[in-house]
């Protein structure tokens, strides 16, 4: 297992290197510069500013500089946002984003698993229909629409939650719900399909023939086996929660990195865009790594297949 994880971490760095290089060159191919809309600057002034950020050098030199910086954990300095280092920019805004992202993933996955399991066990009853209805809603309403709806009714009209504020746990509830809908719907649908399958399998019948109560059959045998494929969709779901959070953070004025990403793109703030892209990639690769480890923990067939223990 340790050997496997070390190998994966090695691949993680190679992937990050490739992503960083790709983003760098793609960014250079974009038309316009961070200062192109500042027509109050004279050509001389522009030259000075460009030199200050190293933009007067050849692309190759810029690239090497950037990669060396990256190796030292330096993501460069933002052109906007008060010329702050990108790392500290991300650092300041990481907490709110991580909080609502993680909350949304946990709420969505746990509720989705429960909903899907109930639907499968009560197959073809009203409970199944209700669960299917809820999960299709979650799947089909975009998170920003849900965010606006929640904000309008729960916050503006009924005043149960703050409209847009970032101070306590209360203020994280609505954005979390808006972001949790999609993972909830996805997991519930996946879980139902999988569990219906598992419940009709031979080993469930054997478990019942041992004298297990229906509850025990589900909790000791069916759940774990149904979870195996569900784990695989956690990765892609994390991606959609991340992209969703960019818009949702804007709607609720949450000072998170999603909001910052959107701003940095509209202002051609290269170092920030690059820094955030690399950071998001890093996060995703970590999520995928965790998913794979989880997968191995749940499914013993995988554990051995990858040259783990034994």
């Amino acid at each position: 297992m340790t050997k496997y994880i070390l190998k994966r971490i090695f691949y993680l760095f190679i992937t990050l290197f490739i992503i960083a290089s790709l983003t760098f060159f793609l960014m250079k191919m974009l038309p316009g510069t961070p200062f192109s809309n500042q027509n109050r600057m004279s050509p001389d002034q522009l030259k000075i500013v460009k030199a200050q950020y190293g933009l007067d050098q050849s692309v190759g030199v810029q690239y090497v500089r950037y990669m060396v910086g990256l190796l030292h954990g330096n993501l460069g300095t933002s052109f906007q946002f008060n010329n702050e280092p990108v790392t500290s920019l991300i650092g300041q805004r990481l907490a709110p984003s991580m909080q609502i992202g993680a909350q949304a993933m946990i709420v969505g996955t746990v509720l989705g698993i429960l909903l899907g399991a109930v639907a499968a066990i009560r197959k073809n009853t009203w409970a199944d229909t209700l669960a299917t209805f809820v999960s299709i809603l979650g799947l089909s309403i975009p998170s920003f629409v849900l965010a606006v709806l929640l904000q309008f009714y729960l916050a503006y009209k009924w005043r149960i939650f703050p409209v847009a504020l970032w101070d306590n746990f209360q203020s994280s509830i609505l954005p979390t719900l808006a972001l949790a809908a999609l993972p909830l719907g996805t997991v519930a649908r996946f879980m139902r399909t999988e569990m219906v399958d598992v419940m009709s399998s031979d080993y469930i019948e054997l478990a019942k023939s041992k004298g297990n109560s229906n509850w025990k059959v589900v909790t000791k045998h069916a759940l774990r086996n149904s979870l195996i494929p569900v784990v695989t969709i956690i990765g892609p779901m994390a991606v959609s929660v991340m992209t969703g959070s960019m818009v949702v953070e804007n709607i609720f004025s949450i000072p998170g990195i999603g909001e910052q990403f959107v701003k940095s793109i509209t202002t051609n703030d290269y170092p920030t865009i690059m820094g955030l892209t690399i950071f998001y990639s890093f996060l995703l690769i970590i999520v995928y790594l965790i998913v794979d480890i989880l997968y191995g923990l749940i499914d013993p067939r995988i554990r051995l297949g990858n040259g783990g223990k034994e």
């Binding site: 399998s201 031979d202 080993y203 019948e205 054997l206 478990a207 023939s209 000791k220 045998h221 774990r224 086996n225 195996i228 749940i298 499914d299 013993p300 067939r301």
Partner: peptide, 12 residues
């Protein structure tokens, strides 16, 4: 049961 390949819980 009849089929030993599918009668055992693969994760236990």
């Amino acid at each position: 049961f009849q089929d030993p390949m599918t009668s055992l819980d693969p994760t236990m």
